[in-house]
Every structure is written in structure tokens, then in C-alpha cells.
């Protein structure tokens, strides 16, 4: 399996470590009134779609970038690869 790294081109998945659902970027606000419920959902409730899925992969044996890989879980087709840092900033995690 290959992951088309946005900076480095296609690299063997063996260089990477997978974490899972990219929703882990959206860590809740610890001071929210319902923080406990939000953290519970964040930690334990994940989608596991048969089809396109956004996943976090770490290029551990490479440039140490965390990536958001959009992958079809049925065909293994990699549709899109982004730097997770860019995704996080775009989602408002600038602090």
C-alpha cells in the first residue's frame, strides 16, 4: 500500500503508523459545560464507514508529518492526502 505524501510523493505504508478517524483532531473544549460528555464522544464514538474515510497517519519513518488520508475502506483507494497540521488550522485549531 502506498500513501501519496503531499511533500514527498508516494511512500510505502510501511513507513507510516495509523491512528484512526481524523475526527481526533476535533478535541473538545475542556471548559465547556458538557465537557465530560463531549470528551466521551470524542474518545469513544467513531464512524467506521464502508467507503470513504478520513484517517490520521503518522509518517514515523519519514518526515514525521501527521497526515489526513482520505481512503476508501472498501477498495483501499487513497483519494486525498493532506498535512494534518493544515487541516487542524483550517478547522480553527490555531492555538
Amino acid at each position: 500500500m502506498l500513501i501519496d505524501h503531499p511533500l514527498l510523493g508516494p511512500r510505502d505504508a510501511q513507513e507510516f503508523v495509523i491512528l484512526g478517524d481524523a475526527s481526533l483532531i476535533d478535541r473538545p473544549d475542556w471548559q465547556a459545560g458538557d465537557a465530560a460528555q463531549r470528551f466521551h464522544d470524542y474518545q469513544h464514538l467513531r464512524d467506521n464507514p464502508a467507503g470513504e474515510h478520513r484517517e490520521l497517519w503518522f509518517h514515523e519513518q519519514g518526515d514525521r508529518s501527521w497526515l489526513v488520508v482520505t481512503r476508501n475502506t472498501l477498495t483501499h483507494e487513497v483519494v486525498k492526502v493532506e498535512l494534518a497540521r493544515d487541516v487542524a488550522i483550517a478547522r480553527g485549531r490555531d492555538r
Binding site: L8, R11, Q14, E15, Q61, G62, D63
Partner: peptide, 10 residues
């Protein structure tokens, strides 16, 4: 230049 893995080693 590239960082990669060979025989389990960085």
C-alpha cells in the same frame, strides 16, 4: 535526501 526504514531501522 529521505528518512526511511530498512530492516526495522530508521
Amino acid at each position: 535526501v529521505a528518512r526511511t526504514v530498512m530492516e526495522h531501522l530508521a
